[in-house]
Nucleic acid binder design. Structure first.
Lengths: 119, 119
DNA sequence: CGGTATCCTCTACGATACTG
DNA sequence: CAGTATCGTAGAGGATACCG
């Protein structure tokens, strides 16, 4: 967390302290900041959840979106998909350790959001 | 941070623990998760920055986007806009206390993102 | 310098219906 | 139950040019 700022001879801030650090914020956001992504991770915090349970828990999201986000999270090894029975088919989604590593940020965001009445 | 889970008589999770808590995550994301928003806040952490300095620091973003995000942040009282001179006009953007309150989350995200080589 | 205005593309997302 | 397929729209965001 350096306080150093790069300026040119005119005192203008330069690109040298540009996208190196901060782009990691953008990249991180693209992972946990997608629509419903954070909520999905948060809803898996207490253990495995079945697909349609997630659909119910995320009232406003379509199956298509949830499916899409789950696939993204699975591809990043943040979530596992497990078929636990067939006929009727049942599938569990659960957080990996890596997925769990994002929970603190999401909970801090939730707290920040609630304590500041974010609309 | 309750571990309680609501289930119906069939053991399915219900909507009653749905959008109440988790939607605060979605709402928070809409505030600090917009494209470039987190990076802008993060770049203001060491003090006021002028408009074109932000443009330079956020290499990949257009003036239009930066302007738009700054207006959003100003509307939410996370950022102040101050004209510090005219001819040539100069404008400073700075974090408010509220804006600063989001820095911890963003820095945690940055650290998470970097330590896990998020692409 | 600090923005606006304009245009244009693209894809994210929702709604709905269907399937193994 | 757990998805896929298809279609349609809004608006997010980039490129460029212009302005006070």
């Amino acid at each position: 967390m350096k306080a150093r700022v790069n300026v040119d001879e005119r005192g203008r801030r330069t690109a040298s302290d540009a996208c190196l650090e901060p782009c990691s914020i953008e990249r991180g956001m693209r992972v946990i900041g997608g629509k419903w992504t954070g909520s999905i991770i948060y809803h898996l915090k207490d253990g495995p959840v079945r697909f349609n349970d997630l659909v119910r828990m995320l009232g406003g999201a379509s199956k298509k979106m949830i499916d899409q986000r789950l696939k993204e999270l699975e591809a990043r090894n943040m979530v596992t998909r497990t078929v636990i029975s067939e006929r009727p088919i049942a599938v569990n989604y659960a957080l990996t350790d890596f997925g769990r590593s994002a929970l603190k940020i999401l909970d801090d965001l939730r707290i920040w959001s609630e304590s500041n009445n974010i609309t």
